[in-house]
Design a binder for these strands. Structure first.
Lengths: 203, 203
DNA sequence: CCATGTGAATGGATTCACAGCT
DNA sequence: AGCTGTGAATCCATTCACATGG
């Protein structure tokens, strides 16, 4: 869904002003009807015969998704993935502001990651409360995932992006999105296997 | 889908022998009917009144997904994410074997990542051919993503796990699975936003 | 009695198709 | 003509419900 944002942004940067639903669909792998349905949900923005004014749709999308303001974010767990996240410049341009990075390991606490000082878990709650943080990114080992999640939630976080290969349970009202490399790889392997064994398309 | 694998594995390690569809569903957040439909697809494995014999289902699943053999994998792009991937021990136990790691940067080539020597792109094709590699993991910048993908495909790779924030185009017969941190975060932000604005459930 | 496998029903999302605007 | 917005039709996945087997 936020794929719309990216695609429209790149098109705008390419100097384009308008798109038709057909063209957008081709880029995103959807049908033109699907595009129109989706965009119509956000209010009618297209001009029949002319297509969509990219800048207007972008503005509306950002507004609708609460993306017109910046979201403060904390990152817990500064291993390889944590470092990748904190040094990933794109987040800031997409409206996410990392206001604190934390780790449980005393050897890591105090070091820097992408220019940010890693702080101890003891400071977590204060930071969350101070910046009114609602989103947390967790890149911690499987064993501590649920524990860290509980701490985040207790401090007021209502959305967690979880990189641990473990299902996190959370009370209603708290959203969890998980990214699991192994699962992704297995999905890929499965697709490849499917393609190899049913190349005729026999479902 | 490969979530079944993980869940069943942990249950087996816990010393359990059988599960009912209801219990499995509770763990995975699905209904019991859903579980039965899925498993029935792989052939009837459950005993009415007793549930599923975990070890049998696992065996069948691995077989079905081509997961009874090991998949050789190459990793291209040894930045933070690349390092995270190569040092992620879980892959090996899940049947994926990293047979080569590569980078375009001469400063990185020759260094070690998780005990593996990073090699130059010039060696990529030979490695793929030699090990009959069909899966590639790409953790490269947006700008070189398509180029690297083309190289992988030209050498014989038919499945790519892409971490670059860019849609990769590939000829039919080649599968692409993309992992995009920004998109995941945005999904999360959107869910949180939804929960905050429609807590009454007014769709 | 417990739990599977599966046809039937349900619901949601995708696609079709077309009226209407430019 | 080109393209949007939207009801109608269609498809797909999930859920229900029940007959059947241990």
């Amino acid at each position: 869904m936020s794929l719309y944002l990216r695609e429209l942004q790149t098109r705008l940067e390419d100097g384009q002003e308008r798109v038709s639903s057909r063209a957008l669909g081709a880029s995103l792998g959807l049908t033109d009807a699907q595009i129109r349905k989706d965009l119509a949900l956000f209010g009618s923005l297209g001009q029949p015969g002319r297509g969509y004014q990219i800048i207007d749709v972008l503005k509306r999308l950002r507004q609708m998704m609460g993306r017109d303001q910046s979201w403060p974010v904390v990152v817990v767990g500064i291993g390889n993935i944590g470092r990748a996240i904190t040094s990933y410049g794109q987040f800031k341009t997409e409206g996410f502001d990392i206001v604190g990075v934390f780790d449980i390991d005393p050897k890591v606490v105090g070091t820097k990651s992408a220019g940010r000082v890693v702080r101890s878990m003891a400071d977590l709650r204060a930071t969350i409360v101070e910046h009114d943080v609602r989103l947390g990114v967790m890149t911690v080992p499987k064993a501590s995932a649920q524990d860290v999640a509980d701490q985040l939630i207790a401090a007021g976080v209502v959305g967690i992006l979880n990189f641990a290969p473990k299902r996190i349970t959370a009370p209603p009202g708290v959203s969890i999105v998980s990214v699991d490399f192994t699962v992704s790889l297995e999905q890929l392997a499965f697709q490849v296997w499917l393609a190899g064994n049913f190349e005729d398309g026999t479902k």
